[in-house]
Design a protein around this nucleic acid. Structure first.
Lengths: 230, 230
DNA sequence: TTGCAAATGTGAGCGATGCTCATATTTGTT
DNA sequence: AACAAATATGAGCATCGCTCACATTTGCAA
C-alpha cells in the first residue's frame, strides 16, 4: 500500500481536517493509527460500510477519542484522499518536468496514465474513496482541485508548445483531460482486466491525438481543422 | 422538466424496482405522485438530504404507503434515473440512425453532446441523481448499462465506417466515449457557464479527432499513426 | 344491496449509526 | 507534590431508514 509504506514522506494532515491538532507524541501516533485502521476497514468492506465504532475498536480506542481528532466520518476519508492526491501530484509533476516537445509530452502522458492505472489497480482503498467521492461535497471539491492542479501542470507545458492558442482554452482542455483521466481509471478498474486495458489504451489514443494535432484547438495536422473551428 | 412534462410517453416503471405492482388506478397515481414529490424535494435539497418522511408528508401519504411501492429510498432515485436514461436513449438512437458517413457521424456526435449539455443544464434533479450515483451500487450499474447501450449504438455505426478495426477495440472505445461524455457533462455543469462551454467544446474536439482519424485506432489521416499503434 | 377477499393505507416504534458531552485519566511542567 | 492542559471514555442522544400488525377501502360476485 502506498500510504503505509512511506508515511514519513507524505504531507502532514491538512489541519483543517483535524478537530484538534495533536501536540503530544501519543496522540500523533493515534491519528496515524486511526487512519491505518480506517484504511484496513475500507479495504475490507468499503468506506460506506465502515463504521466509526469499528474504527475505534480496531484502533483500540474509544469513540470519544476518535472524535477528538476527526470532526466526522467524512474527514477520515478526506484525509486519506488528500494523501493519495499528494502521491499522484508528485508523479505528474515529475513526468511533465522533463517535457520540451510535443512528442515528449505525448510519451509522458502515455506513461503517466500507465502509472495511474497501475495505482488504481493496486489500491482498492483509493478506488473506494473516489467512488465515495460523489456523496461528499467536500471530497468532490478535493477531487476537482486535484484535476485543476494536474491540469495546470499540463497547461503550462502545453501553452509553451502551442503559443498561439488562447490560454483559457488550453486551461479548460487540460483540466478536462485530467478529470477524464480519473473517470477513465475508475471505469477501467470496474470492468474485467482485458476490457480495462483496452479502455485505457483508447483514452491514451484519444488524448494523444489531441497533442499530435498541435494543441486543444487542433493544428495544421488536423484534417478538418477549419470545420471543427466553425 | 422533462419527466413531468410527458409522463405518458415514458416507459412504465421497471417492475423490479417496485415492491408491489400497483393494480388499481389510485395506487398507480400514487406512485406517480411519490416520484413527483421526490423530484421536487431532490431539486430543493438534493437526494442525499431528501428524507423519506418528507416524501410521504409532501405526497400526503403515510410512511407505510411509501414503502408499499418502493422497497427503499434508493429505488425512488433509481426509478427517476431510468426515466432520464430512457429520454437520453431516444435522443442517441435518433441522431445515430441517420449517420452514413464519418462526416455525418461527427456532426451527429457534436449535436448530441450539445443536446446532452442542455439537458444537464436544465435539469438539476438529473444532475443530482448522477452525483448520488457513486453511493449506490445499483445506480452505478444503471449508469454503466446506459453507457454500454449508447456505446453499442455508436459502435455499430462506427464499425460499419471502419471495417478493418477489431470489433472489441471499437466497442471499448465507444463505451469509453459515452461514459466520458457523462463525466464531461457533470464536470461542465459544476463550473461556471463560460468554462463549462469551453469544456464541452474541448470534449467534442477530442472525440471528433477520433472520428476524423478514421476510427478508434487512428487511420490514414492521423500523422503519427504508426507511432501510436506501436 | 350485501358480503367478502384482495388491495391498499397507517403510524408507532425498532434497530442502526453518527456523534456529543460531562466526567475521568494521563502527561508535562514547575 | 501540585496543578493545568491535554487526552480518554462511553453512556446516551438524535436522526433516519424501514417493518409490521392492524385498519380501511376497493372491486366484484352472489
Amino acid at each position: 500500500m502506498i500510504l503505509s509504506a512511506s508515511p514519513a514522506t507524505l504531507p502532514t494532515d491538512d489541519e483543517t481536517a483535524l478537530r484538534r491538532t495533536p501536540s503530544q507524541k501519543r496522540s500523533r501516533e493515534r491519528v496515524e493509527q486511526i487512519l491505518a485502521c480506517a484504511t484496513a476497514l475500507i479495504q475490507e468492506k468499503g468506506s460506506d460500510a465502515m463504521r466509526m465504532s469499528e474504527v475505534a475498536e480496531k484502533a483500540g480506542i474509544s469513540i470519544g477519542s476518535l472524535y477528538q481528532y476527526f470532526p466526522d466520518k467524512a474527514a477520515i476519508v478526506r484525509t486519506l484522499a488528500e494523501r493519495y492526491n499528494a502521491v499522484c501530484n508528485e508523479c505528474i509533476a515529475a513526468e511533465l518536468a522533463k517535457v520540451t516537445s510535443i512528442a515528449e509530452l505525448r510519451d509522458a502522458f502515455s506513461l503517466l496514465f500507465d502509472i495511474y492505472y497501475d495505482m488504481f489497480l493496486a489500491e482498492p482503498v483509493m478506488r473506494d474513496i473516489w467512488s465515495a467521492m460523489q456523496a461528499d461535497k467536500a471530497l468532490r471539491e478535493i477531487d476537482l482541485a486535484q484535476s485543476r492542479a494536474g491540469g495546470k501542470l499540463l497547461a503550462d507545458v502545453w501553452a509553451r508548445l502551442v503559443p498561439d492558442t488562447p490560454r483559457e482554452e488550453i486551461d479548460s482542455a487540460a483540466f478536462l483531460i485530467m478529470h477524464l483521466g480519473d473517470c477513465t481509471m475508475r471505469l477501467a478498474v470496474s470492468v474485467d482486466r482485458a476490457e480495462g486495458d483496452r479502455i485505457v489504451e483508447a483514452f491514451k489514443r484519444m488524448t494523444i491525438k489531441d497533442f499530435v494535432a498541435d494543441g486543444p484547438r487542433g493544428g495544421a495536422g488536423s484534417i478538418d481543422n477549419a470545420m471543427t473551428r466553425s
